[in-house]
Design a protein around this nucleic acid. Structure first.
Lengths: 227, 227
DNA sequence: TCAAAAGTGTTTGGTTTACACCCATGA
DNA sequence: TCATGGGTGTAAACCAAACACTTTTGA
């Protein structure tokens, strides 16, 4: 990734809120920046011959190793003040010590995506500008760089809406999962308890489940989704 | 609007699908381009110190004279091939005869908006690059420039979805309107007939109506919306 | 005065919610 | 064996859809 030359489209970036689920917690993949040691959402820029969707897939592949996953463009962030940097980083930019920072100091609008990935398969990988990549519990995320807290918040509320309309929650689980696991996932994201029986009925009707294992009485306990 | 200097953010544009309603027809405001005499959606670029939402409001104000209207960002269009011009226009670009065309010949991603306006109040006004601005019946729109047919199609399907969730249809009507007018509007956009009584009941419940006139038997015929 | 459209309320069917009991599993 | 959590069905409430008759308006 060489920013100093003209490899990328000007003024446009994208940020990905990558959601995962583990230990009954909704998690988000974050990067710790080299320069400022602040946390940030994984993001990237558009190659000159690349669509936003492809750029997002590329970012996702690079940060998690995963392809073919649920990804949704949900909003464009373009406030004038969104690029306001932490003053310490701003000083670094002015000093001219790091040429990459000049690129970052430009004004960008950012296209927000969110992704739902299988936590157990994702290999969190930092990019050129970050020293580490970690899954953080949603509830424990504090200050992110720029307007990334806003992006996260919007992604979450968009996800919550979608979850009511479309059966997408399973994207956060392994190929095989149990109903209680799926329900726990929904309860965690929507932050409310759901009736066990109603949830089961509704989802058995809407989705195509393959019943993977059955207990002695022929009841299905572990399921996987047929797409 | 001076394109040759650096007044606008690079690589980013926006396009507005401006919907109106008249004579029981859903209409879209289109511009006829000076160079190619092709039809296009009204659009624009982002000033260096302007958010996308503001730019869209500015475009809307300039093309219709209206402010404070329903406007929604619905999708980003960034396909590599989207900027492919009509060959005749492409030749004009190469000839270098018009400096503006060089700006247009760059690659842009475009942020799609749609707006719902009161047809009777909107004054269709062409921009610097168009020779006329006209309301066209949705059903009679043929080839538009670039990917504008796609943008229109996506705007429409997004509008149809929204219409089922949120009471936004009245934005296309004058301040006062009758229930049959509102229903006709919904029937036109959704392209299906709706039951008169169910429609009435549902909407009286959801919306805050001010009953403007009443007939002899005290029945309300003309209504307006309280916001 | 006649025809076309607008106004209103009720019944039905389907979907969503609430809820209780039995069985399986593991400590 | 006991406690915790998983599995299932049914009744009530709510919302959506279907439907007929009377009144108004304008030709």
């Amino acid at each position: 990734m060489n920013l100093s030359t003209e490899n990328y489209l000007k003024s446009v970036s994208l940020d990905c809120v990558i959601f995962g689920f583990h230990d009954n917690q909704l998690k988000v993949l974050l990067l710790k920046m080299k320069f400022s040691h602040e946390w940030a959402l994984p993001g990237g820029f558009l190659c000159l011959d690349e669509s936003v969707e492809n750029a997002a897939k590329r970012v996702l592949k690079e940060r998690t190793g995963l392809g073919n996953i649920f990804l949704k463009q949900f909003m464009v962030f373009s406030n004038i003040s969104r690029s306001k940097m932490n003053p310490a980083v701003q000083d670094l930019v002015i000093s001219g010590a790091n040429p990459d920072l000049e690129w970052f100091a430009q004004r960008f609008i950012s296209i927000g995506f969110y992704a739902l990935v299988d936590f157990t398969k994702a290999a969190a990988t930092p990019d050129t500008f970050s020293e580490s990549a970690e899954w953080k519990n949603l509830t424990e995320i504090e200050n992110l760089i720029l307007d990334h807290n806003l992006i996260l918040q919007e992604a979450l509320s968009n996800l919550r809406l979608q979850l009511n309309y479309q059966p997408i929650g399973f994207n956060l689980l392994p190929d095989k999962f149990t109903m209680p696991e799926l329900r726990k996932l929904y309860e965690t994201i929507l932050d409310k308890t759901l009736d066990r029986r109603n949830f089961q009925q509704k989802n058995v009707n809407i989705w195509n489940f393959e019943q993977a294992t059955r207990n002695k009485k022929g009841r299905c306990s572990q399921i996987s989704v047929l797409l």
